[in-house]
Design a protein around this nucleic acid. Structure first.
Length: 1052
RNA sequence: GCCGAUGUGGUGAAAUUGGUAUACACGUCAGACUCAAAAUCUGAUUCCUUUUAUCGGGAGUGAGGGUUCGAUUCCCUCCAUCGGCACCA
């Protein structure tokens, strides 16, 4: 047998392929033919490529090569997730800049991947640590910020004391740091968060429309944790006389660990308390509101702010406070691991169960989590195991509500499988005797009618903390006022006191969102005015201004001013002289002639800019002053506004009001009712949102904010950028003396959340990717990556994509149409590969010893792509033997003429390989190649058919097949530019097949038959089989089951 | 604890909608070649059983049960392994 000189041919062909650029991404792509194949972005670790990487790149590469051969236009790129803690920690240890080792590791990875024969377009590679990449990571952060999705808040966060940084929930594994295994502690710190929770519903629901592994979809759904239930208010009963001073309620918005949405809700409640003067409510979230008759106590999380509010009423405060303080010192892990529930009853206070009207006690206990729901529960010990355990320990009465049930813990909301109507309610007042299906909606309705409940959907998902106190990441592109006091930071944390809305040209104050918004604000007891601007069809700027000024309260800073369309300019002029909490400009139409002649549909871009500038000049509006006066400026633009050339307008505002948040809304027209009401709630949210006057976005032309090199990156708990001597250079000139750059860096997951967009257009310095490139290539057709990223990277990428969709940049809202995970490759000892076990296989060693084709085919042959499987060196040699036999046969073959049988065999093989490759069943495709070679060695073959075999092997063994193709057979063009051979369907059924003859279901013989033979002939053949006849002889045939081409079963 | 996935030879594994269980490969054994070994080639290889050898017979896809002419595949109960979540009300 001839042995392949793999080292020689691999070197030769790698160079030739590179020179002839055969793997370059095609230009002029037909959308119907595009195929975007994406291997997961690797972290370029110093220890080099792992066999698991090799599996991913090989699988993607075989698939990509196959797609090219069937005529698809393929995009396949590999880039580098280069920022991150391991590189930084290594840098700290060695005192070498992380860039040096990272770039070295990247070179190494690239060489190793190239050696595997991966047909990657390296011209498009990206590294997330390069400024031309992280410029756009920063841009994405600002996109989030512009849309109100990035916020800074003091919260209890996960702190790793060894890495000296904050971690996302996804990076905490069993209470330990994912990277260094240090136990995580909770620490109150001000951090940047992204509001991924705002997308929780869509992130959960849209999982149903993508082709992902079922268990992955399930895991992501569980992580998002959607549950349907109700918010129920319990009236608080104070036993001491006299009501507390409610003024103290105002300072509650920054309390620890309680979600913003909860706080919003509680502040709603406050309005109720103001109104009734004597009533306070405790709100709980429950999914089993129908068990409320059994609620015999309520429980607050130790973080719950109501505890502080009730302090003066709680007669055993000292004891309660001690408990609260004690839980503060417990780690999340301690709290999880404690199996025995603890808690304290609050003396002196209680709540009223709204259904039974009985007074029930309040407890504080750490089995209730501050971060979920409202941080408070109604406890139903009869139907909840946790509540039961607690009630037994603290001797609270237990009430059962279900008759006929064996399991006392069932809640009749959802736990009962099958026929729920065999149980009925007891102890449930007017609902006694009802079935669960009847009672659940009826009880909710009753509670709603009483005004104490509303249906509510809750999520487990928390907002994503993205700031890191580390060096090796993209700087966070924000600036902050250095001397900001707590007072400045929090002065706009509550609701605004007044909202002024200015209507548009030719419109009335009752139109569009104006009245709706006013009604919504009234519910929150926020004053809102909409002045009638004079002569709306022939407006005069100064007249509008004069009228508007009459409703502005110039002494009230906590005020929101909204200018819509033409009144944008009125609002701007007002903001020049009046201090405002927030200025909102909705669809700012150009002021060209409009104050007299009315608004035209889109005018030329030049006209717009000229008209705006003339207007600003004529009316002497000082935009700098406007920025200084406003806590925040938000400009809403719609991507299809008929009156506004949206791109130019956006650009002008970016330049002239650089601190403004520009909020792009997809297809909202001119923000009128015609375009749908979907923007109305967004506007309301924006009116109510907290404003941080001490924080501003970086200007666009300041991007990228360069990560400085002059930094001592040793961890101190302070962000290392604090100590850079030059990081703040030029900031005063750009932003003013009192401002400085944010010194935190961004979580590396932000870098990897959008890289697949950058591959499309990696050198674009005007956008993260051009519209054309996005339209051509996205979404990703096939994404292969590890299952460890399900609740991190994969969730974040979907989030980013949905935000881009909402902002009108793209017209799809799921990035990865088809996604699969590769299984883990274990060592020969069936253990996870690890230095500790000494069972690590280095793919490059295998390439050197046996060749790239061998490791490619071996890793595919090991088993199904998604399964974990153990390495076997002996089996690697088996694959190598197969390739040597292919080579030897090609070299020495004395080909014969075509024979029909061989042709049938070939097409059977080709059909199987074609389908298996398309379906990613690479392991069975390889076994089909081997089977076919066995056949060929026994029967010989014609040259024509053998060529077809070699072609079909090309995606799997690119080097060997190229060598045979060009060197042995003198073909002029690379085999990798050839077309995939088509199998002939008509040949597949032609051959004679063997089917089993069964007697009473047991195989007694086999007959050769074609698939269209009828039953009588088949029976005749069966009788000729001696062993079959032995049974049929003298027997009475009761039944014959004959499935042509499959089986003949005779029942006697 | 809850949820999910997976259990097939000595090993990795295969088996379209239920239709010859163990393809393909590794390993092992025997033989060929060789002074010898490696490499290579040929053959055997689920277990039990019958037989001088065939031809046969029985059991068999984690265990037990069910549906069916027929079950690795569908249903029920249980066990084991792996993975995820972990007081989410």
């Amino acid at each position: 047998m001839q042995t392949i000189n793999h080292q020689e041919i691999e070197k030769k062909w790698t160079e030739k392929w590179l020179k002839s650029v055969i793997y370059k991404t095609p230009e002029n792509v037909d959308p119907a033919k595009k195929q975007y194949i994406l291997p997961q972005l690797p972290y370029p670790s110093g220890s080099g490529l792992h066999v698991g990487h090799a599996e991913v790149y090989t699988a993607c590469d075989i698939y990509a090569r196959y797609q090219r051969m069937i005529g698809k236009q393929v995009l396949q790129v590999i880039g580098w997730d280069a920022f991150g803690l391991p590189a930084e920690n290594f840098a700290i240890k060695t005192n070498i800049h992380p860039r040096i080792n990272t770039d070295k590791a990247i070179e190494n990875f690239k060489a190793q991947i190239t050696a595997l024969g991966a047909s990657v377009d390296w011209d498009r590679t990206v590294g997330s640590h390069n400024p031309d990449y992280y410029k756009w990571t920063q841009w994405f952060f600002l996109l989030m910020y512009d849309r109100g999705l990035a916020y800074r808040k003091k919260q209890a966060v996960n702190w790793c004391d060894s890495c000296k940084t904050v971690l996302a929930n996804e990076q905490v594994v069993n209470g330990h740091c994912e990277r260094c295994d240090t136990e995580i502690v909770q620490k109150d710190m001000e951090q940047w968060f992204l509001k991924i929770t705002e997308y929780a519903d869509r992130l959960s629901a849209d999982l149903d429309k993508i082709d992902w592994p079922a268990e992955t979809i399930k895991r992501q759904k569980d992580w998002i944790g959607r549950s349907e239930g109700a918010l129920v208010k319990f009236e608080i009963k104070l036993q001491e006389s006299g009501i507390r001073n409610l003024e103290s309620d105002k300072t509650d918005r920054n309390s620890n660990g309680v979600l913003k949405q909860v706080q919003d809700r509680i502040s709603e409640d406050k309005t109720t308390s103001y109104e009734l003067q004597t009533t306070k409510f405790l709100e709980v979230f429950t999914t089993a509101h129908d068990t409320i008759f059994g609620a015999t106590f309520v429980v607050l999380a130790p973080e719950h702010e109501m505890l502080q509010e009730l302090q003066s009423q709680i007669t055993n405060w000292a004891e309660v406070n001690q408990y609260i303080q004690a839980t503060k010192f417990k780690t999340e892990l301690d709290r999880q691991q404690e199996k025995v529930k603890t808690g304290i009853k609050l003396d002196g206070v209680g709540v009223i169960n709204p259904m039974t009207n009985e007074e029930i006690p309040i407890f504080v206990a750490d089995y209730v989590l501050g971060g979920y729901g409202t941080g408070a529960i109604m406890a139903v010990p009869g139907h909840d195991e946790r509540d039961f355990e607690f009630a037994e320990k603290y001797h609270v009465p237990i009430k059962y509500l279900v008759a006929g049930a064996e399991n006392k813990f069932l809640s009749y909301s959802g736990d009962i499988k099958g026929n729920t109507d065999k149980y009925h309610l007891i102890n449930s007042g007017e609902f006694n005797g009802q079935s669960f299906t009847e009672a659940r909606p009826a009880i909710l309705k009753k509670l709603e009618d009483l005004g104490v409940a509303k249906a509510q959907i809750q999520f487990k998902l928390r907002d994503w903390s993205v700031s890191r106190q580390r060096f090796w990441g993209a700087p966070l592109p924000m600036i902050k006022r250095m001397a900001a006091t707590d007072e400045e930071k929090t002065k706009f944390s509550g609701n605004p006191e007044k909202v002024v809305q200015l209507h548009a040209w030719g419109s009335k104050k009752s139109e569009h969102f104006h009245q709706w918004l006013k009604d919504e604000l009234a519910k929150l007891k926020i004053e809102s005015v909409i002045p009638d601007l004079p002569e709306p069809y022939t407006p005069i700027f100064n007249e509008w201004l004069k009228t508007a000024m009459t409703v502005i309260n110039q002494d009230l800073e906590n005020q929101v001013l909204i200018g819509r369309s033409l009144s944008t300019w009125t609002a701007l002029k007002i903001a020049e002289s009046v201090k405002l909490r927030k200025l909102i400009l909705l669809c700012p139409v150009s002021p060209v002639d409009a104050y007299i002649k009315g608004i035209k549909k889109i005018i030329s871009e030049q006209e717009v800019i000229t008209s705006i500038e003339n207007f600003i000049y004529q009316n002497q509006i000082d935009l700098k002053k406007v920025q200084e006066n406003c806590g925040e400026i938000v400009i809403f633009l719609s991507t299809n506004d008929p009156y506004i050339p949206f791109v130019e307008t956006e650009k002008w505002f970016r330049e002239n009001l650089p601190f403004a948040r520009i909020f792009r809304v997809k297809n909202a027209g001119h923000f009128n009712a015609d375009a749908g009401y979907s923007t109305f709630p967004t506007l309301l949210k924006e009116v109510l949102a907290e404003v941080r006057p001490d924080l501003r976005r970086a200007k666009m032309d300041d991007l990228p904010v360069i990560l400085p090199d002059d930094v001592d990156f040793k961890p101190t708990g302070q962000s290392p950028l604090t100590y850079s001597p030059h990081f703040q250079d030029g900031v005063a000139e750009k932003y003013g003396n009192e401002w400085s750059r944010e010194v935190d860096t961004l979580d590396t997951f932000m870098c990897s959340s959008w890289y697949y967009f950058r591959y499309l257009d990696p050198k674009n310095d005007q956008a993260f990717a051009s519209e054309k490139a996005l339209k051509t290539w996205m979404p990703v057709d096939f994404y292969l990556g590890g299952p460890e990223h399900v609740n991190g990277h994969l969730l974040y990428s979907r989030f980013f994509t949905k935000v881009l969709f909402d902002a009108g940049y793209i017209d799809f809202d799921e990035p990865f149409t088809k996604h699969r995970h590769q299984g883990m490759i274990l060592g020969e000892d069936h253990r996870k590969m690890s230095k500790r076990w000494g069972n690590v296989i280095n793919p490059t060693d295998v390439v050197e010893k046996y060749g790239a084709d061998t490791i490619r085919i071996y890793e595919m042959f090991m088993g199904p792509l998604e399964q974990s499987k153990a390495w076997s060196d002996a089996a690697v040699r088996g694959v190598r033997r197969f390739l040597d036999r292919v080579y030897t046969f090609s070299l020495n073959a004395k080909f014969v003429n075509d024979s029909p049988e061989t042709e049938v065999e070939l097409h059977k093989m080709l059909a199987k390989v074609t389908n298996d490759t398309a379906e990613l069943h690479f392991n069975t495709a390889v076994s089909e190649f081997m089977k076919f070679l066995n056949y060929v060695e026994a029967h010989n073959i014609s040259e024509k058919l053998w060529k077809i075999f070699i072609l079909s092997l090309a995606p799997y063994a690119p080097f060997l097949t190229e060598e045979i193709w060009q060197t042995l057979w003198f073909e002029k063009q690379s085999i990798h530019l050839e077309r995939w051979p088509k199998y002939d369907e008509s040949l597949l059924g032609k051959s004679e097949i063997q089917i089993a003859v069964q007697i009473n279901g047991k195989v007694r013989g086999k007959i050769n038959i074609s698939s269209d033979t009828d039953e009588a002939i088949a029976m005749g053949l069966a009788h000729q089989e001696a062993n079959v006849e032995k049974y049929l002889n003298n027997a009475i045939i009761k039944k014959v089951v004959y499935v042509p081409g499959k089986i003949l079963n005779v029942i006697i």
